[in-house]
Design a protein around this nucleic acid. Structure first.
Length: 314
RNA sequence: CGCGGGGUAGUAGCAAUGGCAGCUCGCCAGGCCCAUAACCUGGAGGUUGCAGGUUCGAAUCCUGCCCCCGCAA
C-alpha cells in the first residue's frame, strides 16, 4: 500500500527544515511542492543567501515557491486550486493564516523541536540548552491559528548530552522529527490517530534570539555561561568587552579551580591558561576573537595584551 | 558603490603615526637545579601583504590591487 497519491506541500526555510525535507523526498511522502522564504542579501558584500530548503528542493527536483508573505489572498486561492491533502511545516518563519491552514484535508502538521507545551515560539532548541535541561524532544502538532498551540499528534524524547551545542542538537532533532513523521503519517492519513489537546496552563514561551543576548554576564556561574555558549552557537555567539573592544569567545572550558578572585577577574591558571572568574568556578578562554581580528588562542591573545591580567570584566 | 578594523621575525600575538624596526611567546646555545613547562645569560631569525607615488628620509602620508575579520542586513 503506497501513500504516494497524497498531495503534500512542505513549508520550511533553514537547515532544520532542510533535513526533514530531504528525508521526506526519499520516502513515499514526497512533497509535490515546497514553500520557502526568498533569497536575502547577507554577508559583507551583500551576496544573496539561499535558504537551505531551496537548495534541497532543487537537489531533489521538487518545484518550489519563494514567498515573503502569505497574506496575499491570491496565494490561498492558488494553493487551494492545487487541492493538497496535507501540509508539513518546519521552521518556515511565517505564520500561516487561517485561510491557508484550512486548505488541506488532513490539516497542517508542524514539526516543533521541543516537548510542547514547553518552549513554544521561535528558539526552543536554544531555550532547552540554556536552561540546562537533560531531556528534550520533538513534537508533531496539528496547527491552529495560535503559535505552537494546536493539539499534539506525537512526541519523541532525546537526551541532551553534556557538550552538545545548538547545532548538534538541532541536527539530531530534525532527524528525529523526520523519522517520527514518516512513522506517524500512515496512521494519520488513515485517521487512526487522535490529536491530544495541549495543557495550556503548562505552556512556556521562547523569544527570538537577539545579538545582545550573547553578552556575557560574569556574575553568572561558569555552568550558566557554558550553557549560554552552547545555546548560542553558531549565532550570536557569546562575547564580552575589553577596553571598549568586543571579544568573542570561540572555545571555552569550565575550570573547577578555587580562587579568591571576584567575578569577571581575569587571571592565569597554574598551567598559564587565560581564565576568567565567575560567580561559581572559572571559565578558561581557549580561543578568542577580537573584533576586526582573526580568532586566536587565549595564550596568543595574552602575548599581545599582557595588561589583561587582573583586570575586571563586567 | 551599506559602516568599520586589520596584514610588521617563525603557520604565534602585539608595539612603533615621518627619523637606527622593538616587546611577549616560540626557537637555538649555554647556565642553574634532584628535576622542570620555572629561573638566569647569550644568540639566530625582517624586502613591514603586493605595485606605484610624495619625501633628504616611509611600517607610518597618497593611489591602485590582493587577502583576513567585526558590524549592519
Amino acid at each position: 500500500m503506497s501513500f504516494s497519491r497524497y498531495k503534500i506541500i512542505f513549508f520550511g526555510t533553514p537547515e532544520f527544515a532542510s533535513v526533514i525535507l530531504e528525508k521526506l523526498a526519499d520516502s513515499e511522502f514526497r512533497p509535490f511542492l515546497v514553500v520557502t522564504a526568498s533569497d536575502k542579501p547577507a554577508g559583507r558584500k551583500g551576496i544573496l543567501a539561499v535558504p537551505s530548503v531551496k537548495k534541497t528542493a532543487e537537489k531533489k527536483q521538487i518545484p518550489f515557491w519563494q514567498l515573503d508573505s502569505l497574506k496575499n489572498t491570491g496565494i490561498a486561492k492558488k494553493m487551494f486550486s492545487l487541492s493538497p491533502d496535507l501540509f508539513i511545516v518546519a521552521a518556515y518563519g511565517l505564520i500561516l493564516p487561517r485561510e491557508i491552514l484550512a486548505i488541506p484535508k488532513f490539516g497542517a502538521l508542524n514539526v516543533h523541536p521541543s516537548l510542547l507545551p514547553k518552549y513554544r515560539g521561535a528558539a526552543p532548541i536554544q531555550a532547552s540548552i540554556l536552561a540546562g535541561d537533560k531531556i528534550t524532544g520533538v513534537s508533531l502538532m496539528l496547527m491552529d491559528e495560535k503559535i505552537d498551540h494546536g493539539p499534539i499528534i506525537a512526541q519523541k524524547k532525546i537526551k541532551i548530552k553534556n557538550k552538545e551545542t545548538m547545532l548538534d542538537l538541532s541536527e539530531k532533532l530534525s532527524l528525529l522529527g523526520a523519522n517520527l513523521l514518516i512513522d506517524i503519517l500512515p496512521k494519520w492519513l488513515k485517521n487512526r490517530i487522535k490529536a491530544k489537546k495541549q495543557n495550556h496552563k503548562k505552556a512556556s514561551f521562547t523569544q527570538q534570539i537577539k545579538k545582545e543576548h550573547g553578552q556575557i554576564n560574569w556574575s553568572k556561574s561558569a555552568q550558566e555561561i557554558e550553557q549560554m555558549f552552547r545555546a548560542y552557537q553558531p549565532w550570536p555567539g557569546i562575547y564580552t568587552f575589553f577596553q571598549g573592544k568586543k571579544i568573542k569567545i570561540i572555545t571555552l572550558e569550565i575550570s573547577k579551580i578555587k580562587t579568591f578572585y571576584q567575578p569577571g577577574n581575569i587571571f592565569l591558571t597554574t598551567e598559564k591558561e587565560l581564565a576568567v572568574m565567575t560567580k561559581k568556578n572559572a571559565i578558561i578562554l581557549k580561543e578568542v576573537q577580537q573584533e576586526g581580528k582573526n580568532a586566536v588562542s587565549g595564550k596568543s591573545f595574552l602575548n599581545g595584551h599582557p595588561q589583561l591580567i587582573n583586570t575586571i570584566l563586567d
